[in-house]
Computed example of a mutant assay.
Amino acid sequence: MANNKSAEKRIDIAKRNRLKNRYYKSSVRTLIKMFFQNLEIYKSSKSPEDKEKLQKTLSSVYSMIDKGTKKNVYHKNTAARKKSQLAAYLKTA
């Protein structure tokens, strides 16, 4: 337990940051799962509508990763690696 006021404040800040990080990381994981589901659908159908949906999902993943990087949830190299891997999966489709 905290022994002084500054330690109590640091506990509150850590709690706030943990919740913020959890929001971004869980959102990115969810969007990546959606991307892979759409990728499987596109691989089987090859329709332009599915490709459009896949591109839209990828765009939202990129956006969320970039926002997380801006708020120091992700390191810039981690964000770049995640985006690069997703682009590589799209390229093989």
Rank of each mutant, 00 (worst) to 15 (best):
84 S>E: 00
41 I>F: 06
26 S>F: 02
41 I>G: 02
57 T>L: 02
26 S>C: 02
40 E>R: 06
79 A>S: 09
55 Q>M: 11
43 K>S: 11
84 S>A: 07
29 R>Q: 09
23 Y>A: 05
46 K>W: 05
48 P>M: 03
58 L>S: 03
78 T>Q: 09
42 Y>H: 13
85 Q>R: 02
75 H>T: 02
30 T>A: 14
16 R>Q: 13
35 F>H: 09
65 I>A: 01
63 S>F: 13
21 N>R: 10
37 Q>H: 06
27 S>Y: 01
72 N>S: 15
41 I>W: 03
33 K>S: 11
16 R>F: 13
18 R>N: 13
19 L>R: 07
55 Q>A: 08
24 Y>H: 07
50 D>T: 11
34 M>L: 04
31 L>S: 07
49 E>C: 02
36 F>H: 08
81 R>E: 11
63 S>Q: 12
52 E>D: 14
57 T>Q: 07
20 K>I: 10
64 M>P: 07
35 F>T: 06
16 R>C: 01
19 L>Y: 05
60 S>A: 11
38 N>L: 08
79 A>F: 10
51 K>D: 08
32 I>K: 05
69 T>G: 01
22 R>Q: 15
40 E>F: 09
64 M>H: 03
42 Y>A: 05
37 Q>D: 11
60 S>E: 11
47 S>D: 14
27 S>F: 05
21 N>D: 14
63 S>C: 05
44 S>F: 12
83 K>Q: 10
48 P>N: 08
74 Y>R: 00
77 N>D: 14
50 D>Y: 12
62 Y>Q: 09
78 T>F: 05
16 R>K: 13
48 P>L: 06
20 K>A: 08
18 R>I: 10
35 F>C: 09
60 S>W: 03
14 A>M: 10
24 Y>V: 05
81 R>I: 10
69 T>R: 00
36 F>Q: 00
74 Y>I: 05
13 I>Q: 15
81 R>C: 02
11 I>N: 10
19 L>M: 08
34 M>Q: 13
55 Q>P: 00
70 K>C: 06
29 R>K: 15
